[in-house]
């Protein structure tokens, strides 16, 4: 079974079909505005709502839930620490089990939580709705070195392959009497016999693959083309300009408000 390091979910809505660059621009705009330009909680909250709507529309929201669950631990600890111990705490808000939470700390914790969720959801939108290869291809088209692009995209498939090779190596070494289970010392001793073959055979494979790539024109000097040359759709362009306009407006708003 082929495995790819990717969280992409193929549900084929317009969110999936968007130019990956638009989604990258969205992350940039969301972070810039809610962190620096207009650092108000309601702005951050607005972006969270926007991201959630897009994720829901793209039918990938279910995949975000585990991510949220994981970050929940961090968020709770932020609330507890800031609510109880922030230096500027003055106004008591609520008491639970004899512990007093302060209003200042809770509000600051809220700001932090909003920012964490803001970044998390904006990235989730990119990662869950974009094929890694599409993202890399659009970066290559915009000047990323094709060699670096290749390294990125092949790593997504080669790393899982290497992990499954570890299983066969483990079998081979256990067959020669190597104990791989037991005390820490036993496990440490087993490390080299397990990792050695992985490293050596990936070096061998890399050389073989390098030759296979060369004979398929990898180093050709002319201009590269792309099988799926995606034309920017009107929607892509509209959204791209809309995001830029929002960015400019927020800067203007900043000066008006100050």
């Amino acid at each position: 079974m082929a495995r790819v390091l990717s969280l992409y979910v193929e549900t084929n809505t317009f969110v999936q079909r968007l130019d990956p660059m638009v989604k990258l621009l969205y992350i940039l705009v969301a972070v810039l505005i809610s962190f620096i330009i207009l650092p108000f909680r309601w702005v951050g909250a607005a972006f969270i709502v926007l991201s959630c709507l897009a994720l829901l529309y793209a039918r990938v929201f279910a995949r975000v839930v585990p991510l949220l669950g994981f970050s929940f631990l961090i968020l709770v600890s932020i609330v507890i620490i800031q609510g109880l111990f922030m230096p500027g705490n003055k106004t008591p808000a609520i008491s639970i089990f004899g512990l007093t939470f302060y209003k200042e700390g809770l509000l600051y914790a809220l700001t932090l939580c909003i920012r964490v969720l803001d970044v998390l959801l904006a990235f989730a939108l990119l990662v869950l709705t974009t094929r890694p290869s599409d993202l890399i291809q659009s970066l290559v088209k915009r000047g990323l070195s094709p060699r670096f692009g290749y390294v990125l995209s092949s790593a997504l498939q080669v790393i899982p392959q290497m992990m499954s090779q570890v299983d066969s190596i483990m079998d081979a070494q256990r067959s020669r009497g190597l104990e791989t289970e037991g005390s820490l010392w036993v496990r440490l001793k087993a490390f080299l016999p397990l990792i050695g073959p992985v490293v050596m055979s990936s070096l061998l494979e890399t050389r073989e693959r390098a030759m296979a790539l060369e004979v398929r024109g990898f180093s050709a000097s002319g201009k590269k083309t792309f099988l799926y040359e995606r034309e920017s759709s009107t929607l892509d362009r509209v959204l791209q300009w809309a995001l830029i306009v929002v960015l400019i407006l927020s800067v203007v708003l900043r000066f008006v408000l100050v």
Binding site: Q165, S168, I169, A172, S175, R176, L192, P197, M200, S201
Partner: peptide, 9 residues
């Protein structure tokens, strides 16, 4: 095993 590269270290 079939592939000697899975064991030699």
């Amino acid at each position: 095993f079939q592939n000697p590269n899975d064991q030699i270290f």
